[in-house]
Design a protein around this nucleic acid. Structure first.
Lengths: 135, 135
DNA sequence: CCTTGACCTTACCATGATAGGAAGGTCCAT
DNA sequence: ATGGACCTTCCTATCATGGTAAGGTCAAGG
């Protein structure tokens, strides 16, 4: 199977497959006489693993660690769980940050009549002036 | 005031001040005879505006739009509100995505005994095999 | 057999926002 | 006058991905 088919079957673009090979995340595949990369079902399986891991928000580096544990027969389940737990913590921190932003912005938007008067609580806040109190 | 003081007072690094100037987000300041950038309180105020906007998650491009509206005397409050509202929507979409990731991962982590047995539901999920049902 | 079009190859450039460093000039206090 | 703290420009890197260009390959159909 050529790289195009492997890309289609795995959901990873051909571009990214070559990139993953270049950075050592996946092993270089066999080549045909005409230098085409050749992939089999196992390689596609690995690519799908990577795709899923990336979709779940793991970095390429974390994905690399997970991939190593997956392919290691004497893998430690606890180690995988720790990576995932750490990732959950990071995600929750990020979520809290974003929620803080939404809260601030929602407050400002609700204070903003949206007419064309020149005073705007959102801009006033960005400019460092205190927002209008009491809703 | 030199760039170092402006950086300190605004919370924007000197590096980023020069970058913002380069991409046209801020105007080039006056220079001394020895080619040093010179800033005054107004410029610091603009930098603080930018800093706050970036902290609230607006991109540099959105920040540029907000800055233009802030500095425009005939600014339309409604336009600012629309930018902020769109940003809130984008943030909420992102939050929902992250929460989805956390949910999936939490489920997997809770299915994972964390001992050293070789079967690991997290890896199994990443590999595309169905997770153990019924928790 | 030859052309056409779809595929593959490598190599380079771009993104967005930020940080780091090198090499050299400037300013101020000792 | 010297040293150290600051400034200048220019180059590099990050992370993951997309694009493009120039050229080689393959299969199908005329």
């Amino acid at each position: 199977m050529n790289i195009g088919q492997a890309a289609e079957q795995s959901g990873v673009s051909a571009k990214m497959i070559r990139y993953y090979e270049q950075i050592g995340l996946i092993n270089p595949p066999l080549r045909t006489d005409s230098n085409y990369r050749v992939y089999g079902p196992d390689e596609v399986h690995v690519l799908r693993f990577i795709k899923r891991s990336r979709t779940l928000g793991f970095s390429v580096e974390e994905t690399s660690a997970l991939l190593g544990l997956w392919q290691d027969r004497s893998r430690a389940s606890a180690e995988v769980r720790d990576i995932a737990s750490g990732h959950i913590t990071a995600l929750e921190t990020k979520i809290a940050e974003l929620q803080g932003m939404v809260k601030t912005l929602s407050h400002l938007v609700h204070c903003c009549a949206g007419d064309n008067r020149p005073d705007c609580p959102i801009l006033d806040d960005l400019a460092g002036r205190p927002a209008i109190k009491g809703h």
